Structures are given as structure tokens and as C-alpha cells.
Computed example of a mutant assay.
Amino acid sequence: MKLATLRTDGRRTGRNGTTAALALGGDRYLPLPAADAGALLVADGWRALVQNAVAADAAAPESAVVAVPQSGLAPLLPAAGKVICCGLNYGDHIQEMGRELPAYPTLFAKYADTLTGPADTIQVHGSERVDWEAELAVVVGAELFRADEDEAQRGIAGFTVANDVSMRDWQNRTLQWFQGKAFDATTPLGPVLLTADEAEGDFEVRGYVNGELVQHGNTATLVFGPARLLSYISQFTVLRPGDLVLTGTPGGVGMGMVPPRFLQDGDVITTEIDGIGRLENRIRINTKE
């Protein structure tokens, strides 16, 4: 199944005014009894809740299904407790950054405030080196602490699409990446969560700038796959339902080009993963800090 978070009050971001929903194809959704997709995953027997909603809708004289355009979708997990990202996880991206294959994952964290919707305009202030990073993201569906890979695999609720938009000038001010990765409302997420039981094999990840294909990778080439990442992270911090792990980006980022290429005001970045969906976000840049 595919789960989404609908926006009910017109807000671009924030933890209020959202409703979890089951995607029924196209822009049709069945509202579910949860504030957002993450809150649904926390509920005991959330699959039964979905099944009951579907049964109730089928029995109702008038369908509760609503039509919502992409612009009506909120970030999938607007209140994610933990947002943990892996950098340098595709062999080609590691190579273009001039590094060697790592023995351990390179991790950094974001806040839920960094997340934005799949069709939202991304407003960037104070950066002249805005870069794109198309990524597969993993949504946690069970509490994991010191889990082995098999347990971590069973604890995956599903997968979604993200773009770790990065402000490289801020990122490179110090050896720590955080400040270039944590600008508010700059990480689009969604449009849906594809549950793990419906995921078939590896994923093709593609990124475009103004329609030009700039990134294309397959998650089969990840140095640290989803289950291995979740297992590793769980060795030092507990992961809970609704937490989010970004798995890294394939080669083709702007900073790795010769000469480097960065986003300009008005550019549109598109991020897509077969079987899950696509994000399409316009970038607005104000270079004044």
C-alpha cells in the first residue's frame, strides 16, 4: 500500500493541519484516522486501521475518497522524531568527491523542520551554492535498538523519496556538515510511503534540474543498504516508528561537476524513484544572509 500525508489547512510546513491517507491511485486518497503518516505507524495495529477504513468506505453510501493534487500533500513525516542521513554511500558519488570507500557510514542529522512537501517551493536565504541530492529514504516501522540486520529489515515500514538539498558554502565553512544541511523547509519528502511488503528489489533513483537528467543510480550499489544502515544506527540510538533515514545520493551532484554547477533562482529540481513517485520543487534563492 501507499500512505501519504494530506494538507488540510494550506500550510506549507508545520506539524498541524495534516491528515494521513491511503493513496488509491492518481490523486485519489482515502483519509485515515491519524494526524500524519508517522502518527499512523505509531498506532498499534495500524494495518488493521487501514483495512477498517477501506471496509467502512466500501460500505458507505457515499465514498469518503478525496481528490488532492500534488500541491495538497504535506511532507510525509512532518513530525519525524529523528531524521538521520547517510552521506557518501554510492560508489560513484564517493569517487566524484575524491574519497575512498568508507568502513563505516558517514552520518549527520536533520530536524523535522527541514522537511517540506513534494511540490512545495523551496526558499533558500543566504547561500550562493545550492546543490541537489536525490535520495531514497527509509521509514522506520518498529522500535529498533542494537538490532541485527535481519531485525532491522523487519523493522522497515517502507520507502519514500527525498532530496537532501545542500547549501555547500555553509557546509564547507567547517568540517561539520550540519549547518549546510539543516536549513528549514529545504528537504522535500514524499509523495507517498511505499510499504516494505510491496517493494520489489532495488530502486532506480533519478534527479533532474529543469528537466535535464543529472543523477541516476540504483540502490543495489549502495555501500550500506537500508537494513545495514538501520542496524548500525540502532547500535547507538533507538529508532522508533516514523523515524526517517536518508540513504545517500548517487553521482551527479553539482559540486562534483567540472566546473561546479549550482542551482539558480527559479530552477526546478525533480526527484523520482520508480514505484514510489516524484518530487518537483522550484528553488527560490535570496543570497543575502
Rank of each mutant, 00 (worst) to 15 (best):
W170E: 01
P61C: 02
L193C: 03
Y232G: 05
F262P: 07
I273E: 00
L222H: 11
N89R: 06
F203W: 03
R154P: 01
G38R: 03
W132G: 07
L194V: 06
L40E: 00
T271R: 04
V223I: 14
R28K: 14
E212D: 10
L32G: 10
A56T: 03
I285F: 11
W132M: 02
P78W: 05
G277Q: 05
Q215C: 00
C86V: 15
D169E: 02
V253M: 14
L194P: 11
R278W: 09
Q215E: 00
D113S: 12
C85D: 01
G25C: 08
G45E: 01
A162F: 15
P259R: 15
L230T: 00
A60C: 08
A112Y: 08
A142L: 07
M1G: 11
G211V: 04
T271S: 06
E198L: 08
G45C: 03
G45W: 03
G201F: 03
E280Y: 03
S231A: 15
E212W: 03
P78M: 04
N210F: 02
F178M: 10
G248P: 09
G14T: 07
V192I: 05
K2L: 08
R278G: 05
I285R: 12
A134F: 06
A23P: 10
V42G: 01
P250M: 00
Y90H: 00
S63F: 12
T270I: 10
N163G: 09
V138S: 07
L189V: 07
E143T: 15
P69A: 06
A199L: 05
E151H: 09
P105H: 12
A53S: 15
P33L: 11
L41A: 05
I94Y: 03
T160Q: 07
T106S: 12
G211P: 06
T237A: 14
L222D: 00
D9A: 13
Q51T: 09
L222E: 00
I269M: 15
T174P: 08
S71V: 13
Q95Y: 02
A119S: 14
R173T: 12
A23S: 15
W46D: 00
T160Y: 10
E96I: 08
A67C: 08
L263A: 03
V65H: 11
F203D: 00
V124M: 08
